[in-house]
Every structure is written in structure tokens, then in C-alpha cells.
Amino acid sequence: MKPGIEWRQPRASAENQQFAGDLHAALSRAPKAISPKYFYDETGSRLFERICELPEYYPTRTELSLLRTHAADMAAQFGGGVQLVEYGAGALLKVRLLLDALPRETVQFVPVDISGPHLLAACDGLAGDYPGLAIQPLVADFTRPHTLPPCPRGSRRVGFFPGSSIGNFTPAEADAFLRLAAAELAGGGLLIGIDLVKDEAVLHAAYNDAAGVTAAFNMNLLDRAARELGAEFPRDGFEHLAFYNPAYRRIEMHLRATRALDLQLGGEIYAFHEGETLHTEHSHKYTVSGFQAMAARAGFRPGKVWIDANRWFAVLWLEAGPP
């Protein structure tokens, strides 16, 4: 780790206990479902980076194009001194475009991510490329209570949540996050990417890539359970399933049992019948007006919007209320 980066690392045992508890709960309910946050161990984070480079996966390249074209305009919404908080920071690729548009001496950067080793490696790379940038990475689940570093005097706190990751939340979870962010970013604002409603064929291809990377990413959740929690199951007994559910305007990802089987976890046995699934992720698609209305109910004031020529993706500026 490079000098000048303040690093906060949680206890691995606590992470495993939470993963185990949530997985037991997921396997006990009907239908079976678990939060997609458990995709993002070190292996899963690397696989997601590969997904972002796939020809079928349009969100990353579309959002990057918007950022490259409009970063200066986006950064102008932030004001002067900024504590820039990136939620679900990952590889720290997109934020570089914002950092390039901001006076570096006025920025404190706080990347927040659940995957500690992956975030540490990304921060090391960022520190090397942006000498003098104040970086304070925080390992945390940003949807749960967490403590950000104090905002520097004369600065305002601005959130950055790219990648349409809010689409992975249920409507209730999205509302809860927006309310949390509105309070945490009071006096500042939030720059957020959302995936828009579009042709179903485009969506299907994006989540069922020909190279099978998304399938491996999905399967890694159970592989992680085997590595970290000692879960036992026939690996060839599950397959990747992704489809668009028009009733909810969302892509759903599942791990589907190809035959009747048992999964053993911590002394418990969980039976799957043939065709039964573990619901691992959903990705909601929005309209701009619908999302702005949801953000307004959570305490934000909708601001500028940037949309690509295909109208596939949008980046929105949301102004938070006063502290």
C-alpha cells in the first residue's frame, strides 16, 4: 500500500459470519434469494471487470462515453472543494474521468467497497497515477450503517454511484439507499448512473454473453460459499439463468438446479428440486422521470441529465438538501 492512503480493513471472520448467516437465510426461504453483494469477493470483482469489457455488455462503455463527453459539465455541478464518495467503488475506472475534470488539490476521495483486497489494489493504482490526491478508502457495505471520514472544512460531500448499480436493489432498497445518501450527502449531491428501459433483445444479450463470463460470475457466488464457508454441492448441478421480467422492468439472474440435489452448509442440508433456483441478482431498468420522482421522494432535487444517443443509459445529478 502506498504512503498517504488511510486504510480501514474489517475482520475477515465477521465478513464470513455475515455471509454464512445471509446464505442460511436465503436457502431457508421460499423462493430462495440472496443479495448480489456477495458476488464481489476478489474473484467476483475480477470477473465483473471482464464483463464490463464484453461486446454484449453495453452499460459500461455507454456510461464511460457519457463521462468522457460531459465530465467537465458534471464536475461543474459539484462546486468548489469536494469530498468525493464513490459507492461500490470497484476498479476506480470511471471516477478518473471526474478527477481529471476537478482541481486535484480541492478533492478528498473516499472510495467505499465491500471487497477489501480488490479496493486496496485499485487505490494503489490510483495513488500512483494521481500523486498528491488525498485518498481514504473505506471497506464497508454502503447500504448498511457506516462512518465516512469528516468532510474537510470548506468542502461539500458529493456522492458518485456509477454503473446503474442501484438497479440491483429492490424498489424498497433503492428508496432506503437514496434516503441514506440524501442524509449523508446533505449540502452536496449525488451523481448516479441508471440503465434505461429498452429492447429486450439488447438486455438478454448483455446478461447471457457468448463467452460465458456472466455465467461464471453468477456461479462464483456458490464457489465462494465452498471456499469460505465449506459449502458442499455438486457444481455441475447448477446452471446460469438470466431473463427479462417485464412485469418488474428488470433482468433477473438465478442459479437453477439441473436436477434434484442437496446443498450442505454448516451442518444444515438444503434441498433443491429440479428447476428450483437461487435468485442471485436483479437489475431494474428505469425511465428518467420515474427515477427522478423516486429521488425527489427520498429528499433530492433533480438536476441535470446526460443521456446517450441510443437512449440506453443516463447519468443524473441530484442535489441534496441542506445539512
Rank of each mutant, 00 (worst) to 15 (best):
M1C: 12
P3M: 11
G4T: 09
G4P: 05
I5D: 02
W7D: 12
R8T: 12
P10K: 07
Q18S: 08
A20E: 15
L23R: 02
L23P: 01
H24R: 15
A33W: 06
I34Q: 06
S35A: 14
S35D: 10
E42R: 15
S45R: 02
L47D: 01
R50P: 06
E53A: 15
P55N: 11
T62L: 10
S65W: 12
V82D: 00
Y87Q: 00
A91C: 14
L92R: 02
A101N: 01
A101C: 06
V107D: 00
V107T: 04
V110M: 03
I114C: 02
L120C: 13
L120G: 07
Y130E: 00
A134Q: 13
P137Q: 06
V139E: 13
D141N: 10
T143P: 04
P145F: 10
L148G: 08
C151D: 00
S155P: 00
V158C: 04
S164P: 10
I166L: 13
F169I: 11
A176K: 00
L178Q: 04
G193T: 08
L196G: 03
V197W: 11
A201G: 02
H204Y: 10
Y207S: 07
N208F: 04
D209A: 12
A211P: 00
E228C: 12
F233P: 00
P234D: 11
G237P: 03
F238N: 04
E239R: 15
E239H: 09
F243E: 09
A247K: 14
H254M: 05
H254D: 12
A257G: 00
G266F: 14
G266S: 14
G267D: 11
E268R: 14
I269Y: 05
G275A: 09
T277Y: 07
H279Y: 14
S289R: 13
S289E: 15
S289K: 12
A295D: 01
G303D: 01
V305N: 02
N310P: 11
R311I: 13
W312C: 05
W312K: 06
V315D: 15
L316Q: 05
E319R: 14
G321A: 07
P323D: 09
